[in-house]
C-alpha cells in the first residue's frame, strides 16, 4: 500500500498542505482585481472608511460617471487600436521572418540571430530618447503610431516564430519546391498552416504586452486625446491622488477587457508560450 502511494505521487499530508497553501495564494493573487472591481462601485464614504468594507453596501455608478467626464472612452479606443495594430503587424512580419531564420540557410543568419537575442535583453527604456527624436523627425510624435512601430520592431515575436517554424519538417518544404511551388506560395499554403498555433500565441502575447506597455505610452503620448487608458489613469492618480473610487473605476475599465481577452484565449496563449520557450 505504502509502495503504491509512492508510485502515484506524494504523501496525502503533503498534498493537503500544498492544496491549502495554493488556495490561500490564489486568493492573494485574485485579491487586487477583486479590490479594483468592488472599489469602483463604492461611494465616497466607503472608499474613505476607516474600517475595511469588503463589499460595497450601496453600489453606485458615480465613479464611472465621473470617469467619463474625462475622455476615458477615447483612451480605451486608443489602447485597443495600439494593441490591435501592433498585434496584426507583429504577427505578419514575425511569421515571415521567423520562417526564414528557422528554415533558410543564408549568409548572415547566425549574426542576425545573435543581434536579435541581444536586443531582446535590452530594456526598451534605454533607447527611448533617440526613439522619441526619431518620431519627431518622422512627424509621428504624439501619435498612436509612435507607440505601435517600436512595439512591432521588438524582436521577441521573430524569436518565438523561429522556434515554431523549426518544427516544420524540411522534407515537406523540399517536396513543395520539387512540385514547383513558389516561395510565397509555399509560405501561404504549407508553412503558415503549420505555424498557426504559434501565430495565435504570438497574437495574444503581443496584444496583452502592447496593452500593458505603460512606459512607451507614457513617453510617446502627450495630448489628452492621444493618451491610453493606463497613462490616463496614472495621470488621474497624479492629479487627484486620494479619489480612489474614480481611480479604481479607471483601473477596472483598463483591466477588465484585457483580462477577458486573456481568459477567452488562455489555452492558445499558455500552449504557445510554453512550446516556444521549452524548445528554446
Amino acid at each position: 500500500m505504502n509502495k503504491h502511494m509512492d508510485l502515484t505521487g506524494t504523501s496525502p499530508g503533503y498534498r493537503v498542505f500544498s492544496a491549502i497553501v495554493l488556495i490561500l495564494l490564489a486568493l492573494f493573487f485574485i485579491f487586487p482585481l477583486y479590490w479594483i472591481i468592488t472599489g469602483s462601485f463604492k461611494d465616497v464614504i466607503e472608499i474613505n472608511a476607516r474600517q475595511p468594507v469588503w463589499f460595497p453596501q450601496s453600489p453606485t455608478l458615480d465613479n464611472y460617471v465621473r470617469l467619463f467626464e474625462h475622455p476615458a472612452l477615447r483612451w480605451l479606443f486608443n489602447i485597443v487600436f495600439i494593441s490591435g495594430a501592433a498585434m496584426i503587424l507583429t504577427c505578419l512580419t514575425a511569421s515571415l521572418a521567423g520562417y526564414a531564420l528557422a528554415k533558410k540557410r543564408f549568409i548572415g543568419r547566425s549574426v542576425l540571430f545573435t543581434i536579435i537575442i541581444c536586443a531582446m535583453a535590452l530594456p526598451k527604456q534605454v533607447i527611448v530618447i533617440p526613439l522619441l527624436q526619431e518620431m519627431t523627425y518622422l512627424h509621428m510624435n504624439d501619435t498612436l503610431w509612435a507607440v505601435i512601430l517600436p512595439t512591432v520592431g521588438w524582436p521577441f515575436g521573430v524569436f518565438l516564430m523561429k522556434q515554431f517554424a523549426e518544427t516544420i519538417p524540411t522534407e515537406i518544404l523540399e517536396a513543395a519546391r520539387v512540385d514547383g511551388s513558389g516561395e510565397l506560395n509555399t509560405f501561404v499554403k504549407v508553412v503558415f498552416p503549420m505555424i498557426k498555433p504559434g501565430v495565435g500565441a504570438l497574437a495574444i502575447f503581443t496584444f496583452v504586452n502592447a496593452w500593458n506597455d505603460y512606459f512607451l505610452q507614457l513617453v510617446m503620448l502627450g495630448s489628452d486625446d492621444k493618451l491610453t487608458l493606463p497613462v490616463g489613469i496614472a495621470n488621474l492618480q497624479g492629479e487627484m491622488s486620494s479619489d480612489f473610487g474614480l481611480i479604481m473605476a479607471g483601473a477596472a475599465l483598463a483591466a477588465i477587457p484585457i483580462v477577458a481577452v486573456f481568459i477567452i484565449f488562455q489555452k492558445y496563449f499558455t500552449q504557445g508560450i510554453a512550446m516556444g520557450a521549452v524548445k528554446g
Partner: peptide
C-alpha cells in the same frame, strides 16, 4: 490566477 496580475496590467495593479 497566478497570471492574473500580469494581465491586469502594471498600472491597474500599482494603483490598487
Amino acid at each position: 490566477v497566478f497570471y492574473l496580475p500580469v494581465v491586469t496590467g502594471s498600472v491597474a495593479v500599482t494603483v490598487v
